[in-house]
Write a protein that binds this DNA or RNA. Sequence first.
DNA 1: TCTGTATTGTTGGTCGCACCAACGTTTGAA
DNA 2: TTCAAACGTTGGTGCGACCAACAATACAGA
Lengths: 161, 161
Amino acid sequence: MDTPEGPLPERLRTLPSRLTNGAALIANRLVDQALAQAGARRYHYALLATLEEYGPASQAALGRRTGIDRSDMVTTVNDLAERRFLDRAPDLEDRRRNIITITPAGRGHLADLDRLIAAAQDEYLSPLSAADRQSLIDLLTRLVERHGDKRHQGARPTAPS
Amino acid sequence: MDTPEGPLPERLRTLPSRLTNGAALIANRLVDQALAQAGARRYHYALLATLEEYGPASQAALGRRTGIDRSDMVTTVNDLAERRFLDRAPDLEDRRRNIITITPAGRGHLADLDRLIAAAQDEYLSPLSAADRQSLIDLLTRLVERHGDKRHQGARPTAPS
DNA sequence: TCTGTATTGTTGGTCGCACCAACGTTTGAA
DNA sequence: TTCAAACGTTGGTGCGACCAACAATACAGA
């Protein structure tokens, strides 16, 4: 993109959805570049982080916890299993399910990804002070949690409280 | 998506990039749904808003101001021209260029989109107080502007100040 | 006047994320 | 025994963001 032609119009300049989207593009690009150094994707990190903290679980349960779509979970589990970062075994008590377990290699990989992700977050937030970073996290958390609750309640919109 | 399986792992819960992405998905979904009522897309709004505020300009200049990719600008101009919301005419002084001008119908359409967009922003930000909304806008603006500056400086990364 | 570089607009893509539907197997309540 | 639901899988869709290559045009410089 060439140098810009001057400021955005007023309507767009402080439009929250546009600002959020713009920030997300930046954040995602930095994270994707960082993770690519280890041949990883965002769902890989999300899954390994979840397994590391909560222990073995079914794909469905992992999907419910992380919000990753079931079919994307299949792809993610396949990717990580192929590199031996996790183990997939049928649940003998319920043969509908696989039980997914992080491996020692997976833990090592997660440690690598932790460092890459931390560097990316630092770069992404570099224009902000520590206090501002915390404010941003608080505000975004409240937005996502409140809207996330609404989504889980299906088509019935809740009255704002 | 079913009801969640409990909290996210610590690593993901306050990850700025993930929170930003999550908020952007929500914001975009609300905006897309709102604009769809008028058969519009986000770039349509961005382009009409820019023409309304700054007057006629070439596609390239509009792309530089809005950040819309040149080929996406072609699609956007085509869409809006087809519905007579803008006029595209060759620049007689430089036949490489088209001059894009909003039409009266385009202004009317923009007014409709303004209302739809405002309602979507209100819903998106409904979990936040007015003060918090302003904080979010300030923080996101700083992030986007600082990183946007970096992008325009090509491959030379600036030292953080 | 000619040449070379840049600009403009267009065509034709890629890619990956987020999302969805349908199916077969298994489970368990009724 | 039946049926609805859960689980995992396959096989998609859609779209935004991004990119490359090309033809026509403009203009600076030799």
